[in-house]
Amino acid sequence: MTEDTLTQHIIDMLAGGHFTLANDDTFFFHDAGNRFPFATIVTKDNEFDNASNLDRPGVFRLNIGVGKETFQALFGEATSEHAPVDPMALDTLMPHPACGKTYWVSVINPSAQTFEKVKPLLAEALELARTRKAG
Results as ranks from 00 to 15, higher is better:
103 Y>T: 11
115 F>P: 03
116 E>M: 07
111 S>Y: 04
131 T>M: 13
64 I>C: 05
34 N>H: 07
74 L>C: 00
75 F>A: 13
115 F>C: 06
46 N>C: 04
63 N>D: 07
82 H>M: 14
100 G>Y: 07
111 S>H: 06
62 L>N: 13
107 V>F: 05
129 A>T: 00
27 F>Q: 03
24 D>R: 15
119 K>M: 15
73 A>T: 15
16 G>W: 03
131 T>L: 10
79 T>Q: 08
22 A>D: 04
85 V>E: 10
29 F>W: 02
9 H>T: 02
76 G>Y: 11
67 G>N: 06
102 T>K: 08
17 G>P: 05
8 Q>T: 13
38 F>M: 14
100 G>P: 06
88 M>N: 08
47 E>N: 10
30 H>V: 02
30 H>T: 05
60 F>H: 12
84 P>K: 09
117 K>W: 10
130 R>P: 00
42 V>Q: 14
127 E>V: 06
49 D>F: 05
14 L>P: 02
3 E>L: 15
106 S>A: 05
23 N>P: 01
99 C>T: 15
95 P>C: 04
43 T>P: 07
86 D>R: 12
39 A>N: 10
132 R>N: 09
25 D>T: 00
93 L>N: 03
111 S>D: 11
74 L>M: 06
95 P>M: 11
40 T>L: 11
118 V>A: 12
95 P>H: 04
98 A>W: 14
79 T>R: 03
22 A>I: 02
13 M>F: 00
64 I>V: 06
8 Q>H: 09
57 P>F: 06
36 F>L: 05
6 L>S: 07
10 I>Y: 04
120 P>E: 08
10 I>T: 01
14 L>Y: 04
12 D>S: 08
105 V>M: 05
90 L>G: 14
123 A>R: 15
22 A>E: 07
8 Q>F: 06
124 E>A: 04
89 A>I: 10
64 I>N: 01
40 T>A: 03
82 H>V: 08
27 F>I: 01
77 E>I: 02
96 H>M: 05
47 E>Q: 07
18 H>F: 09
74 L>W: 07
91 D>C: 01
29 F>P: 03
135 G>N: 12
64 I>Y: 08
123 A>G: 10
46 N>S: 08
61 R>G: 02
95 P>S: 08
121 L>V: 09
78 A>I: 11
79 T>C: 03
26 T>W: 02
20 T>I: 05
34 N>K: 13
134 A>T: 03
22 A>L: 14
89 A>M: 14
106 S>G: 14
108 I>K: 15
124 E>Q: 09
62 L>T: 01
34 N>P: 02
99 C>Y: 15
28 F>M: 13
7 T>R: 11
39 A>M: 02
65 G>D: 07
114 T>K: 08
54 L>M: 08
41 I>N: 13
108 I>P: 14
2 T>H: 11
45 D>G: 12
135 G>D: 04
81 E>N: 14
21 L>E: 13
46 N>L: 00
70 T>W: 09
55 D>K: 12
127 E>D: 12
53 N>W: 00
61 R>A: 04
2 T>A: 08
91 D>A: 07
12 D>R: 13
37 P>T: 02
122 L>E: 12
73 A>P: 05
129 A>M: 03
128 L>Q: 02
134 A>I: 01
113 Q>G: 09
113 Q>L: 12
25 D>S: 01
56 R>I: 07
50 N>M: 02
20 T>H: 09
19 F>S: 08
120 P>D: 06
44 K>V: 03
13 M>K: 07
88 M>D: 13
86 D>N: 14
